[in-house]
Amino acid sequence: MQKFVAFIWGGVIGVLGGLIGLGGAEFRLPVLVSVFKFPTLDAIILNLMMSLVTVIFALAFRVGLAGLEPIAAQMHIVLNILAGSLAGSWIGVHFATRIDEWTLTRAVAILLIGLSGVLIGHEIVSQQFSLVIPAWLQIPLGVAAGVVIGVFSGMLGVAGGELIIPTLILLFALDIKLAGSLSLAISIPTIIIGLTRYILKGRARIIAAQSTFVIAMALGSIVGAWIGSLLLGFAPSSMLHVLLGIILLASAIKLLGHHRPTLPKALLN
């Protein structure tokens, strides 16, 4: 029964991921913690694994529909962001394995709340402001943004799409649908670096221990990513941003409600 529920949740999350160009990790993480009761660090590692599967298939489905040319034409932007995100992902794992679970959970919730604000307010901001970044400034800003994206990816087990997509739109003035495809291409090596770091630190045994659960949820995510990619041409971007923002905010509230801080052991003696 748990595997079937995992498949269904994976499908729902995969649709959201395939639709906007995300790994779905920001939606999956609260589900892993609140619904399936995984400790936060275990949930982060499982989340990275399933995000990798979702992102790979979501990108493949998008390339199948739109072709590889639009992504190839912007490969310099992909490499620009990756220059920072790969290093940031390595750093993020270092922090994730050294802080207590309540602090880590709060960090996840704060990220979700912040991202919900970005998504909900994106249309208003984009209509009121039109930033033109000089080409010579785009490269260092892209690297700096990549570091931040990588840190959050490694530390919180997310693909980083909600940070990558606004960066691509605001910094490089890309269309949101193209930004979604590039976000998937950037996320794949970023996630791989984070997973590799957890494996080298001996923290990834949870993936083998929960292999059937991972497979069930990953299969659901693949099916969902395919459905989401088919819906891409019909989804209004502004409504989608608001919907995803509301879901992220609700997820953050649920995550904080599920994890309550406990008294230090010294105070209980």
Results as ranks from 00 to 15, higher is better:
A216N: 01
A209T: 05
G220K: 13
L249M: 11
A250P: 05
S229A: 15
A225R: 13
A209D: 04
A252L: 11
M217H: 01
L243H: 08
F234C: 09
L244S: 03
S221V: 00
G233V: 13
G224F: 06
S238G: 10
G228L: 04
L243D: 02
I253H: 07
L255C: 15
F213R: 06
G220F: 11
H241C: 12
Q210I: 04
S238R: 11
S251C: 13
F213T: 00
K254P: 03
L230G: 07
M239R: 12
I227M: 15
V214F: 03
A250D: 07
A209L: 09
A209P: 06
L256A: 10
A225W: 11
L248E: 00
A235M: 14
I227K: 12
A252M: 11
G233F: 03
I253M: 11
S229I: 00
L240C: 14
S237L: 09
L219E: 01
L240I: 15
A208D: 08
I207P: 00
I207F: 04
A209Y: 01
I215L: 15
S229T: 11
L243A: 14
L248R: 00
A208Y: 08
V223S: 02
A218Y: 10
L244D: 00
I253G: 09
L232A: 14
M239D: 11
S238Y: 09
A235H: 06
A225P: 02
W226T: 00
M217L: 13
M217Q: 12
T212Y: 09
V242Y: 01
K254D: 09
L231T: 06
A218I: 07
M239C: 08
P236E: 12
M239V: 05
S251R: 10
I227F: 15
A252N: 04
I253L: 11
I253E: 06
S251M: 13
G224D: 04
A235W: 02
S229W: 05
L243I: 12
L219V: 03
S251W: 02
L232F: 05
L219A: 07
S237T: 09
G228V: 05
L256P: 01
L230Q: 08
A208C: 08
F213Q: 06
S229Q: 10
A216H: 03
G220E: 04
A252Q: 10
V223M: 10
L230E: 12
V214G: 08
L249R: 09
I215S: 07
L231G: 06
G228H: 05
L219C: 05
G224W: 03
S221L: 09
M217T: 06
A250V: 12
I215P: 02
V214W: 01
V242R: 03
S237A: 15
A252S: 14
M239L: 15
S211H: 02
L244K: 11
I222D: 03
G224H: 06
S221I: 03
I247R: 01
S229E: 03
L231S: 13
A209E: 10
A225M: 14
L256G: 05
V242C: 10
A218V: 03
L219F: 06
A252G: 05
A218K: 07
A225V: 07
I207G: 01
G228D: 04
V214I: 10
